[in-house]
Design a protein around this nucleic acid. Structure first.
Lengths: 189, 189
DNA sequence: CAAATAAACTAACACTTGTTAGTTTAATCT
DNA sequence: AGATTAAACTAACAAGTGTTAGTTTATTTG
């Protein structure tokens, strides 16, 4: 593990502040104070406030996309793929508690990167939906509206960051298993 | 139905803008432009930007609290109460698509009303948890970690506002039924 | 018609915003 | 030791912020 650069440190601290107050409510002076320096000094390391948000969100979105591609090529059946998607979200969310807040709540402030983010998001949902539909066709899962199924599962998974920090006693493997029971058993035939 | 006052109209339009960009990113000049007047004119009707947010969030939070009290006194069994809670969220969310965004994403900017809001929220979750635990004790629902169950169900219900507007073809009763199948069948014995 | 009221307006305020320019300090390389 | 570089600093900017004061306009009421 190479040590964190100053730029990475700024982005990490920014993500924490963005989670607490949202991107728009965090000023560069707030961020500087949290770093123990003056606002102008931040610009030795980053180009703009906007670039910090871009880095946080796009890195995460690409990580989810890469994870989905692995799931698709895993050769598992539908239920197995859904299990893997749950594990994917549990892992990324637990490693990026702060960044996930920006991904969920501040993506609309992306500006130049907005179109690219939305493309990744739509593709991810298309891939997810395809897995569900294939599972319905093959008779693996119950024939319920796949949009509602996807919404229910994805919303829960996308909000894990809100909840994981409150439950230190629960280990992540146990969390994956419990979510699997709750989210998947209800649609498994 | 009495006609909407100018103040109510401002709050309604503000909620819409808050959903699109978040409370902090919406300026009083943005709101005025959306109303077709100048920013200063808003103050003939409202006391402050803060008061608009308070009105949006606290009204909704109290509506949820009142709904939960009705569910508690309904005399239904655990599964029946959970069904009613789903219907409660579907109803309130579909009637307050914009306000629900503020409730979920901008509650941290409440200031004076923050403690009161958090009290309502904690009480609501305590009531919800009590229903689940009682269901586990009575053998009505599966013995899975009730925290994870509650998180999964509540997160989905709290995010309905994101999704209802995209699915005009799905009527609300059908939505309640489908959610009931997905969220509850997985924990029903 | 006169008076009262609701609701808009213009102008301005004190403060905060992201960012730039230029400079100083301390550590690292040759 | 001298040169380079990383990373902080002070000072300032132009624009935007929520809000207030005082005024005008149009509608409603007595």
């Amino acid at each position: 593990m190479k040590p964190e650069t100053r730029k990475e440190e700024i982005i990490r601290v920014a993500a924490k502040l963005f989670k607490e107050k949202g991107y728009s409510a965090v000023t560069m002076r707030d961020l500087a104070k949290a770093m123990g320096i003056k606002a102008a000094s931040l610009y030795n390391h980053i180009n703009s406030k906007q670039d910090i948000l871009n880095a946080i969100i796009i890195n995460l979105a690409e990580e989810f996309t890469a994870g989905m591609k692995l799931v698709q090529s895993s050769g598992e059946n539908c239920i197995g793929k859904l299990n893997r998607i749950i594990e994917l979200h549990v892992r990324i969310s637990s490693q990026n508690i702060y960044g996930m807040a920006s991904l969920n709540n501040d993506w609309m402030h992306l500006e130049e990167k907005l179109d690219y983010y939305q493309r990744l998001r739509i593709d991810y949902e298309d891939d997810f939906r395809a897995i569900l539909k294939q599972g319905i066709t093959s008779g693996e899962i119950v024939d319920v509206n796949p949009e509602v199924m996807m919404f229910s599962i994805l919303t829960t998974l996308r909000s894990l960051y809100l909840w994981i920090p409150k439950k230190e006693e629960l280990n992540l493997e146990e969390l994956s298993n419990t979510l699997n029971q709750i989210l998947i058993k209800g649609i498994n035939k």
